[in-house]
Amino acid sequence: MKKSKSWLHVCVHFLLWIILTISSYSAKVSPVTDDISKLFTLKHNIPKDYRIPVRYVPKEEGGMCWVKLNVFSLESSLHDLAHKFGNISSNRNDISVIIIILQDLRFKFSLVDLVMYEFDCHYREERWQTEKYFDFLEEYLIAAKNEGDSYDCHPPPCPVTLHDVLDASDTYTEAPPTPSSEDRECPTGCTARKEPRLLPEVVERSLISLLFIPLLALAFLLVWKVRSRRNGEDLEENAGESGVFTGTEGTAPPLDAEISEKNMLNVIETV
């Protein structure tokens, strides 16, 4: 009887040990591998020529922080992709499961926003076909299976773009500014202090132009006065000449009177 009880205790302890071992192993296993098979289903349900937008950091630039850098971007990309399907669509349900896996990974990591900010110049935005997108997502989930929260995140130098090269060439070829007259007056190379303006330059120019209006009016008035004086003198001279001619004509005897006087003289001579 004692032997049977002892064997019973051994069996019970053995079963408990198996249960605890399995539960602890399942707790250690990442949820990433639980539903990774859904990626295969999504890859074949979505058309191959469909372009899925994604923002990511390449593995060669992300280094040890590659998983941490892409977790939020992939989650956002899957959210946008899930909204393309209806509420009762199986594709939307499968995508929601992958989103939950990425959210669990993101909660496990710390300082994700800070690391993303430090690697901001290394992010790329592209549109991938369905097969390439889900292959990248599968590679990411496999790499994230045993990924820990690494703190050795040192971003490499930002890649040089054509825009940066053009900006650098512009800075080298830019001619130095020519010194103004005020700068030339300073013999030691210092910059002369400019007195503050009471009014803007445009207002000062307009006021100066307004000063010419009364000067032009005064000049016009003088010219008009001189011309009017000359015209008055010309009228007086013309009036004097006309008076002389009329006086001589008034003193001249009329023609009939001369004829009558001649007739009277002839009569006296005959008598």
Rank of each mutant, 00 (worst) to 15 (best):
D183L: 04
G189V: 07
V160P: 04
I259V: 14
I98W: 00
K194C: 03
R124G: 01
N93G: 10
Y56N: 01
N91Q: 15
L221H: 05
R92S: 09
S89L: 08
K68D: 02
L222P: 00
L166H: 03
L105R: 02
K28P: 00
W128I: 03
S90N: 11
K68A: 01
E261Q: 14
K132C: 05
L20V: 13
D113R: 08
W224F: 06
V160N: 11
D35V: 11
E233Q: 09
S77Q: 04
K5M: 05
E147A: 15
H83V: 11
R106S: 12
K28D: 07
F212A: 15
V160W: 02
K2Q: 13
A143T: 01
Y172T: 11
L218D: 11
L166N: 08
F109N: 07
L210F: 04
I268L: 14
L162V: 06
H9I: 02
H83E: 13
I213P: 03
R205S: 09
P179D: 14
L199R: 05
R124H: 09
L114P: 01
A217E: 04
P159C: 05
M64E: 13
C158N: 04
C153G: 04
V271A: 13
I99H: 05
S110F: 03
R124D: 03
K145P: 02
L218N: 05
E125R: 10
K108L: 05
K132E: 15
N93V: 13
R229H: 11
P187I: 07
K2P: 00
E174A: 14
L221C: 10
M116N: 11
P155N: 08
R51M: 13
C11A: 15
S30L: 04
P187A: 08
L114C: 08
V112H: 06
T130I: 07
G232I: 10
L166S: 09
L215H: 06
I52F: 04
A175E: 15
K5H: 01
H154A: 14
W17A: 15
E195D: 14
R92F: 00
P196V: 03
T248P: 02
F40S: 15
F134Y: 05
E60Q: 12
Y140A: 11
L216H: 04
S110W: 03
F245D: 14
K84R: 11
N87M: 09
V203Y: 00
Q103N: 15
F85K: 04
P179F: 01
E61W: 01
S26F: 05
G240Y: 10
L216W: 06
I208M: 05
D35G: 07
A144Q: 08
F107M: 15
S77H: 01
M64S: 12
D135T: 08
I46L: 04
N231H: 06
R205W: 02
G63F: 01
L199H: 03
F220E: 12
E61S: 14
T270H: 05
A168S: 14
R230S: 11
E233L: 04
V203E: 12
S90V: 07
V226E: 11
V112I: 12
I88T: 13
V271R: 06
T21V: 08
V226A: 13
D164H: 07
V57F: 00
V54Q: 08
K145C: 10
K145D: 11
S37A: 13
C190Q: 14
T246E: 13
E195C: 08
V115H: 10
D164F: 00
G63L: 00
R193F: 04
F14S: 13
K38T: 10
P159L: 05
I259Y: 07
K108Y: 07
V203Q: 13
K225Q: 14
N70K: 01
L39N: 08
